[in-house]
Amino acid sequence: MHNSHIKLINYLWVFLILLTLFSAYMAERATPGLTSVCIMAIVLAIKGRIIVDYFMELKEAHVILRALMRIYFYVIPALIILVYLFPEEIAKWTVL
């Protein structure tokens, strides 16, 4: 295990911490709106991708497994934005 890999993992942890502190700042200070929702969705996508690729070490693993885990962090952020943009339409389609 090269020291460069350990350094990368250390830097990624610091980056994840900074992203979380940024999210907390957004929660307390930012005006709710499309911009803040999009930023939060992107932050989630980045955090998920880092954990999947580097902490779970799927970056160079089996292609299907990697795709299944990565897709989660495309779909959930996309749903966050869609639910913000089209709440009434989605509500209409989901009435029993």
């Binding site: 957004m26 929660a27 709710p32 939060m40 969705a41 989630l44 955090k47 966050i80």
Partner: peptide, 11 residues
Amino acid sequence: ITIFPLLYVIR
């Protein structure tokens, strides 16, 4: 990390 923005951050 998915629960956090959904329940605590996004309004």
